[in-house]
């Protein structure tokens, strides 16, 4: 693979937006930098003959996951990265050294990879090529079913995590649901009041 202008530009954009994600002090800006990083990665996927994965990357990663992050950051008013006290003032230097060492080891290991001489073409990585692999019982069909079930379990877990008291009390005391539910509405009202006061 030749290294031209666009490869260098994409590499610089990837590293720059990655550094912005880990260094920016405003969480909203960091999440927006993460979206930029994912979009550049999607462009790289297109260049690497993985067009379907590039579309999924834009739709699911940049479109759904990071927007969920942005919702939570704004819902909790947790945009500032400087919370609490700095317990380890020298941690950035140590972490930087560790990350540089990790990068050196990874680059050394990955550049020793010898690709096969005549690799077959991928057909652009279009759904026509990926579908038969995904739904082949001897390849990935059962993994696909397990991942679908995992998504269902994660959805149920997210719902239970948000309202644990209400759901657990409703299932364990079906006769007196009112008694245990009463303390929860004032709490949420207080939260709403605080949020309004902050704004």
């Amino acid at each position: 693979m030749s290294v031209g202008f666009w490869e260098i530009l994409a590499l610089l954009l990837l590293v720059g937006t990655g550094l912005a994600v880990v260094r920016l002090q405003n969480a909203v800006h960091a999440a927006l930098a993460l979206i930029a990083n994912f979009l550049v990665v999607a462009g790289v996927y297109v260049a690497l003959e993985a067009r379907f994965v590039a579309m999924i990357q834009i739709i699911v990663y940049a479109g759904a996951i990071v927007v969920l992050f942005l919702f939570v950051i704004m819902l909790l008013s947790a945009a500032s990265a400087n919370v609490g006290q700095d317990l380890l003032p020298r941690l950035p230097w140590v972490a930087g050294l560790g990350a540089a060492g990790l990068a050196a080891v990874l680059v050394y290991a990955l550049t020793r990879f010898q690709p096969p001489a005549n690799a077959p073409a991928l057909g652009g990585g279009l759904p026509q090529a990926l579908g038969p692999l995904l739904y082949d019982p001897e390849k990935w069909l059962y993994a696909l079913l397990v991942v679908g079930f995992l998504l269902l379990v994660a959805t149920v877990a997210a719902v239970v995590l948000i309202e644990p008291e209400r759901i657990i009390s409703a299932t364990s005391h079906p006769a007196h649901p009112r008694q245990d539910q009463k303390p929860t509405p004032p709490m949420t009202e207080q939260k709403d009041g605080k949020a309004v006061v902050k704004r």
């Binding site: 994600v21 880990v22 990068a103 990874l106």
Partner: peptide, 13 residues
């Protein structure tokens, strides 16, 4: 591959 190694290290940092 090098770009992915750099991104992984940045994420670890």
């Amino acid at each position: 591959l090098i770009a992915s190694a750099l991104l992984f290290s940045i994420g670890a940092y």
